[in-house]
Design a protein around this nucleic acid. Structure first.
Lengths: 200, 200, 200, 200
DNA sequence: CATGAATGAGTGTTCATTCAT
DNA sequence: GATGAATGAACACTCATTCAT
């Protein structure tokens, strides 16, 4: 009597594990977090873990893909007619809001340098490329609309926006830096970046 | 009749190990880099490694302290009479020059989130605090000289300078970002940060 | 639907490891016996070892506690009405019977001096104290019954009984000393201890 | 200009190392004591250690041989005419006096079970055999003189004397057992052993 | 589907020993 | 003779992963 697999419950389990992993990775880094700890946080047995993710690497890949998907969704959800520059600054605000979860900041800084592990590196690159392409497109649009400086190519500005966000995340992960309080300065800095130095 | 120990050779060995560690850490992260690999890169036996550093942790701490010391030296070496703002931008240039070694960039990003390992966390904090204090002091001086905006406290500006440098380092560690080519834009962005948005 | 864990099998594995450890410790001493050898004797992988005992120390502690428990059981099992002196000599016989396993003798002599390793030292002390208290009590009872000399305090006699048993165990561990053949002489010597020198 | 080796200084160095080793062995056991610690206690470099003893094993063997030699000397130094029984009890007193050094007791208990290490096992056996033969001879003499029971062979009595001394040493190594205070009881026990149970 | 006992390659670290100075 | 830097085999222990139940 093969009970039909319940995809809802399955997804719930996966999210439960992903959530535990976020905590563990943020605390000890990817290599430092053990599957045993993730299982303990998630309240499951190790067997269950490997039922849902064939390897530890695949778990991290899944988390990264989840993030990539969210990025895609954000830009896809753009209200038609919204000015491009506003979309850019909106994304910055969106990213900062994610960093309200202190684990997110830790996760980003900790996962950045995983160039070994080919699967993970690929997922990181995909995440990066997705955001970079989306930003590049909307920056180019803003340039055409005259909302953004044109002395730098759109791609380079996109990368520098990401640079600012990543730097901000890194500070958030440490102590003594209130993401909420500093967010306006981030928006200001991105604005200054998009405007460039005053002509004077 | 004890042979007089040769401190020069001892220091050379330490530097040899530190150099190998920089490579390994940048490649695989702290936890991912094995002492065995560091030894292989350095061309020494494992016993020699632990003869010079009692633990893997202590090696990282030594590297960090080396960096802290270099920061201190940089600010101590300031020519009397140099304008404060020029010192700040000079430091930015100095930091970027270090990132010409691609391992340095990888190292910085990879080592950021090591909050477990109390000794390492302490050394990271010390490194951070040293730079932050030095920048704060010179930023405050620049404010008094009217070279820098005064609507933000010196400490906050110091942190944001570090944010920009760290974000820059993170990009350098990845591909598709030429540190040398992007350096002027970093100086420009720091300048924008120090000036603030145009009064207009 | 967690399979109900089988405590029987778990206990069996533990005993299997303990048995292998007894052999290895008796052969090479505590420090000299490697976990690898214990695993080989027990026919298990190293992972399994540490699945059941978190450290090598904890294994020895478990063995010692097993012994302490057995001592407690022996004295608790005393038939009501048995004369105290008979209980004492019964215990001596019981101890000698254990020494029929040549590994037991080796184990005792080898484990005696482990004053480093705080956990082990504590377990040794607990084992010692349990036996000493049990013997002291029954010796005191025998003194009240007039079966044992009263010129020495019960505690001191208890210690000397243990001294004789330990000395006997030490001889058993070496060669040229048949525990079974020498047992009557041990009982005689304990008798002499309990009686003291003839009044004459 | 090969300076003639100074055998006095050489012997002093050896004794200095042996003394340090006694301390270290008593504290941590043979396997637990490192050559590095012995060197530290002795205040010498590791190179010097291996100048005087080619291996750690050879050091222990040397200590054991020192002890064997002392045993031999004790029995050789017997004043002509001394009654055999008095020699036996004199030896017991001599052994107890050695145990006044708390390291001696620890050393004896800790070194007992080293059946691996063929050289050490051989030295232990030699030490044992030397004492046993000496005791056997003097016990036999006492038996002929009618000072000692004759229902047991001299060799067996010799072994039991050693059993009592070793048991005593084991207690001394632990706490709560004052060698000096308990010595008379040891002499009494040996006396009772040599007399056997009263005919009554 | 869920479990946790079992695995063994791999990890950081130790230590007796060697040897150039 | 004396030193301590260098060595690498061996050690206790970890951990991602497998699989019988």
């Amino acid at each position: 009597m093969p009970r039909p697999i319940d995809p809802v419950r399955r997804r719930a389990r996966r999210l439960q594990i992903i959530d535990a992993a976020l905590t563990a990775f943020a605390l000890h880094g990817y290599a430092g977090a053990t599957t045993a700890e993730i299982c303990r946080i998630a309240g499951i047995g190790s067997g269950t873990f490997f039922h849902h993710f064939p390897t530890k690497d695949s778990l991290l890949v899944a988390i990264l893909e989840e993030g990539t998907e969210e990025t895609r969704r954000f830009f896809a959800a753009r209200e038609p007619g919204t000015p491009a520059r506003q979309v850019i600054l909106g994304y910055v605000g969106h990213a900062v809001a994610d960093l309200a979860d202190p684990r997110a900041a830790g996760f980003i800084t900790v996962v950045g340098g995983l160039t070994s592990h080919p699967d993970i590196a690929a997922a990181l690159r995909a995440d990066e490329d997705t955001l970079r392409a989306a930003l590049r497109e909307v920056v180019a649009e803003a340039q055409h609309a005259g909302e953004v400086r044109t002395d730098l190519p759109a791609d380079r500005l996109a990368v520098w926006i990401m640079l600012l966000i990543d730097g901000f995340a890194g500070r958030t992960a440490g102590g003594g830096f209130e993401a909420a309080a500093e967010a306006p300065l981030l928006v200001e800095q991105v604005g200054l970046l998009l405007d460039g130095p005053p002509a004077d």
